[in-house]
Design a binder for these strands. Structure first.
Length: 425
RNA sequence: GUGGGCGUAGCGUAGCGGUUAACGCGCCAGGUUGUGGCCCUGGAGAUCGAGGGUUCAAAUCCCUCCGUCCACCCCA
């Protein structure tokens, strides 16, 4: 009976980010990290899995994330854990658990982490994707909302992403939302025969979502629906006004979108989304908002918070679409080749010395002919080939050939470093 | 969870019922005497997604499953 062998494949909805993709990721990561420094956000790394209750309580029992997208598993001790489906709840958990209430408020934190959601994969959507996010916890003022929006705005700006639209809305708080939802339901009640099936479900489950239905049939009804801005309580209205004042002060342009709502339960007041102009379902590239009730929901004292998350895969997708220059992949500066096996040891030593001197170097290996080694050097994109032949071996020299233009010089072995450095500062 | 497209060497594709499955890129090697890129030659590499069926004959037709991509839902 033949043993059954099997080629393993990456699980559905996951990907391998190979070296030739890394320039995109480095480009984004470097910009994000530097901006966070400038804005005074400190990096937090929290576990990739958490007690699943953190998310069911924090994100909301009836959200899609909790109902059908969480990777939940039991560990050997019987604990029910979940791979992180979003980034905000873990940060809030850490804020509470690590006593960050006693730090100067707000506490500014950022993260860069894989996110897991069991969902059908599609363009720009993965079961494991990565999010960069920032949270400011412990300050209710609109200036902090403006600040996180500005941070995200600046990121896209630094990345040279064009044609992004910032949509802004407010969805009130515990004071005014019930009244608005009542008004919205009253408005829809007589029209349920005219809306799509999904909207009939939303009417029961999550009336706010009625507003962002894309079905043509529902558009005329949405257009005449009551606007939240007419039902805001005074503090929420003030907050929204203040936020817009700050955004204008920072020269951030935005569009008020009364139909913008969010799929996570914890949002209050200001919510926002960055959308590329190009149409498409999975287009939201980054989004966020205020979550003043979340910490309390997680067992802390009432503590305000606001933040955003942005999807790295979607950023990379847009960088590619827009042909943004993100820099090049790693190439060796020097490829060390040898003519005969006698020179192998010397070649290895040279490659080793170059690396020790911080010069990216690769040594030839095996029994390849010098010609094959040269081809290899070219294929790797090396700047120089260092050739050690019979003559060099007896002279204690190395022939350095610059592959770009074919010029070459022979220099003493210990002068290779300086020669290469001088030409490539 | 729903709907549609596609699954042939590492990658991109052709072949769409009939001898040893083709091409491009990539990979490896050679084109004599110590050297790349262009060009030329040669080579390795494919149980044609899997299983079943129709047929004298199937990569090619049918069914099922799986995978993948796209869209919906929802989200970054």
């Amino acid at each position: 009976m033949a043993a059954e062998t099997r080629r393993y494949k990456a699980p559905r909805g996951t990907q391998d980010i190979l070296p030739d993709e890394q320039p995109y990721w480095d480009f984004v990561r470097t910009a994000a990290s530097r901006l966070c420094d400038e804005f005074g956000y400190g990096r937090i790394e929290s576990p990739i899995f958490e007690d699943s209750g953190l998310f069911t309580r924090g994100v909301g029992e009836v959200t899609d994330i909790v109902e059908k997208e969480m990777y939940v598993f039991e560990d050997r001790g019987g604990k029910t854990l979940a791979l992180r489906p979003e980034g905000t709840a873990p940060v809030c958990r850490a804020y509470l658990e690590r006593g960050m209430q006693s730090l100067p408020q707000p506490v500014r934190l950022w993260y860069w982490t894989p996110i897991f959601r069991y969902d059908r994969p599609q363009a720009g959507r993965y079961r494991q994707h990565h999010q960069f996010g920032a949270e400011a916890i412990g300050d209710a003022s609109a200036s902090v909302d403006a600040e996180v929006i500005e941070l995200l705005w600046r990121l896209y700006e630094e990345l040279n992403l064009k044609d992004l639209v910032l949509n802004l809305n407010t969805i009130g708080d515990q004071e005014c939302r019930p009244g608005y939802l009542e008004a919205l339901r009253d408005y829809y009640r007589g029209k349920l025969d005219d809306v799509c099936d999904d909207c009939r479900g939303r009417f029961e489950r999550n009336p706010l979502r009625l507003l962002d239905c894309k079905n043509d049939r529902c558009q005329p009804i949405i257009a005449k629906a009551p606007a939240f801005t007419d039902h805001l309580c005074e503090p929420c209205a003030q907050h929204f006004q203040d936020l817009q004042t700050y955004l204008r002060a920072a020269d951030i342009s935005y569009e008020l979108n009364p139909r913008l709502v969010r799929g996570l339960d914890y949002y209050t007041r200001a919510v926002f989304e960055f959308q590329p102009l190009e149409e498409g379902g999975q287009s939201t590239i980054g989004a966020g908002g205020r979550y003043d009730g979340l910490i309390e929901q997680l067992g802390g004292r009432p503590t305000p918070g606001t933040g955003f998350a942005t999807g790295i895969e979607r950023i990379v997708l847009n960088l590619k679409r827009q042909d943004v220059d993100v820099g090049e992949q790693w190439h060796p500066l020097v490829y060390v080749a040898y003519q005969t096996p006698k020179a192998r040891e010397q070649a290895y030593r040279l490659a080793s010395d170059l690396r020790r001197a911080s010069i990216p170097a690769i040594g030839a290996g095996g029994d390849r002919s010098l010609k094959a080694q040269m081809r290899h050097a070219d294929a790797l994109g090396a700047e120089y080939a260092a050739i050690i032949g019979e003559r060099e071996l007896s002279d204690g020299t190395v022939t350095l050939k610059r592959l770009r233009d074919g010029t070459q010089v022979t220099v003493p072995t210990d002068a290779v470093k300086d020669h290469v450095r001088a030409a490539n500062p």
